[in-house]
Computed example of a mutant assay.
Amino acid sequence: MSKILVLNGPNLNLLGTRQPDVYGSETLKDIEEMCTAHAAPLGLSVDFVQSNHEGVLIDAIHAARGTYRGLILNAGALTHTSIALMDAIASVELPLIEVHLSNIHAREAFRHTSFIAPVALGQICGFGSQGYSLALDAMSAYLAEAHKE
């Protein structure tokens, strides 16, 4: 079973109560439970880290090397500001899929730029919590293809 680390950044601990019109009514715990259930039939196990602190996320990315086969990251607002997160992702050389609950390209202009996208396999946005399931499906397919090589 391949281990995947799902990282969630600033303010995602407030899901369910924070702007439900934008981010939905599900809590982060609901999303984690959904991810765990969705991952098992794909042959994946998932662990979760949420932090409002950039350095904690960077430390988790560094620690993932040698333990996890891939990363799924919703960096929240750090997506648009953190070169340090981008560098950490590039440094560990693990496949990463970027996830956003809302469609960041249909929101304020500053949200259209992602520092994560250049070091990600791809970006999933605008599908709410389903984006995490889509990311797990994509990661599973990517790892299966990589295993063939």
Rank of each mutant, 00 (worst) to 15 (best):
94 L>C: 14
117 A>M: 06
112 H>G: 11
102 S>W: 04
40 A>H: 01
78 L>H: 12
115 F>V: 01
62 H>L: 08
44 L>H: 04
63 A>M: 00
89 I>M: 15
44 L>W: 02
95 P>Y: 01
97 I>E: 09
72 I>F: 06
124 I>Q: 11
89 I>L: 15
123 Q>P: 00
99 V>P: 01
46 V>E: 01
100 H>A: 13
122 G>F: 12
57 L>D: 06
58 I>K: 01
43 G>T: 03
77 A>K: 00
70 G>C: 10
47 D>K: 03
58 I>W: 01
102 S>G: 07
68 Y>K: 08
89 I>K: 12
43 G>L: 07
82 S>R: 04
77 A>S: 14
49 V>I: 15
63 A>T: 09
99 V>I: 14
41 P>W: 03
98 E>D: 14
90 A>C: 11
114 S>G: 13
47 D>Y: 05
96 L>F: 07
80 H>G: 03
105 H>V: 01
49 V>A: 08
75 A>R: 03
46 V>F: 07
43 G>H: 02
47 D>E: 15
108 E>W: 04
89 I>G: 10
95 P>Q: 13
105 H>Q: 15
100 H>I: 13
88 A>Y: 06
101 L>N: 09
91 S>H: 13
72 I>P: 01
47 D>P: 09
51 S>T: 06
106 A>P: 01
116 I>M: 12
45 S>V: 06
52 N>F: 08
82 S>H: 00
62 H>C: 10
70 G>W: 02
71 L>D: 02
69 R>N: 08
49 V>P: 03
111 R>G: 13
41 P>Y: 04
118 P>R: 03
43 G>P: 08
99 V>A: 09
43 G>V: 07
91 S>N: 15
91 S>G: 15
114 S>K: 10
110 F>E: 13
75 A>F: 06
61 I>L: 03
82 S>D: 05
112 H>V: 08
90 A>S: 15
124 I>S: 04
121 L>N: 08
79 T>A: 04
58 I>F: 06
120 A>E: 05
68 Y>L: 09
51 S>Q: 06
39 A>F: 05
81 T>C: 02
46 V>S: 08
53 H>Q: 14
41 P>S: 13
41 P>L: 07
90 A>G: 15
48 F>T: 01
111 R>S: 13
75 A>D: 08
106 A>K: 15
60 A>D: 07
69 R>F: 00
101 L>W: 02
54 E>M: 00
53 H>F: 14
75 A>N: 05
57 L>Y: 00
121 L>F: 08
121 L>G: 10
63 A>R: 12
80 H>W: 07
97 I>S: 05
54 E>F: 01
